Amino acid sequence: MEKGKGVMVGRRWAVDFSDNSAAPSSRDIPDPAGFTRAPQDQDESTLSRQKKDAEANWKAQKAWEVAQAPFKNLLMMGFMMWMAGSTVHLFSIGITFSALWQPISALQGLGKVFAPYKDNKVDLLGPKLVFTALNLVGLALGVWKLNTLGLLPTHASDWVSSLPPAQEVEYSGGGIPLY
Rank of each mutant, 00 (worst) to 15 (best):
G142I: 08
M76C: 01
L134N: 08
Q68M: 11
H89M: 12
L100H: 00
L124N: 07
Y117E: 08
K72S: 15
F91T: 09
V130G: 02
F71K: 10
Q108T: 00
V137Q: 13
A99L: 04
F97Q: 13
Q108D: 10
T96L: 05
A115P: 00
L125M: 06
K121Q: 12
G94E: 07
G142V: 04
K118T: 15
Q61N: 08
A67T: 04
A133V: 10
I93Q: 12
A133I: 12
G111Q: 11
G126W: 10
G142Q: 07
E65Q: 14
I95K: 05
V113L: 11
M76A: 14
A106M: 03
Y117C: 07
W101T: 03
A63Y: 04
V113G: 03
L124C: 09
K72A: 15
I93M: 08
E65M: 12
L90F: 05
P116A: 06
T96H: 04
F79N: 10
A67H: 05
N135Q: 13
W101K: 14
H89F: 11
L136R: 11
M77Q: 07
L139N: 00
S98H: 06
N135L: 07
V113P: 00
L90E: 15
N73Y: 09
I95Y: 13
L139W: 09
L124P: 03
N135V: 11
N73F: 04
K128V: 01
Q61C: 07
S105F: 07
Y117W: 14
Y117G: 08
P70M: 10
F114H: 00
L134Q: 15
S98Y: 11
A106S: 10
F97P: 05
P127N: 03
L125E: 15
I93N: 04
